[in-house]
């Protein structure tokens, strides 16, 4: 499960695409838009080590996306 805020909700699409490259698939996608960010909860099925790497990559995407 990844849980965090994203400034630009387009990066949710990027995360979902990335999951498939790791041979994972989203099992839960919950995005709640607020004034300046979107609260994202997303869970995946897949090999445990792939999910670990995927979550790490998501952290990088979200950090770059929020960079200001």
């Amino acid at each position: 499960m990844y849980e965090g805020d994203v400034r630009d909700s387009r990066c949710i699409a990027r995360i979902i695409n990335l999951a498939y490259r790791f041979n994972c698939a989203p099992t839960l996608i919950d995005a709640q838009a607020a004034a300046h960010a979107t609260r994202l909860r997303i869970a995946f099925s897949g090999a445990p080590d792939a999910i670990v790497r995927l979550i790490a990559q998501i952290g990088k995407i979200v950090a770059d996306e929020a960079f200001a």
Binding site: R10, C11, A13, R14, N17, L18, D64, E65, F67
Partner: peptide
């Protein structure tokens, strides 16, 4: 959309 995975942002 096209460059989403070809850029940091």
């Amino acid at each position: 959309a096209i460059t989403q995975t070809a850029t940091k942002r």
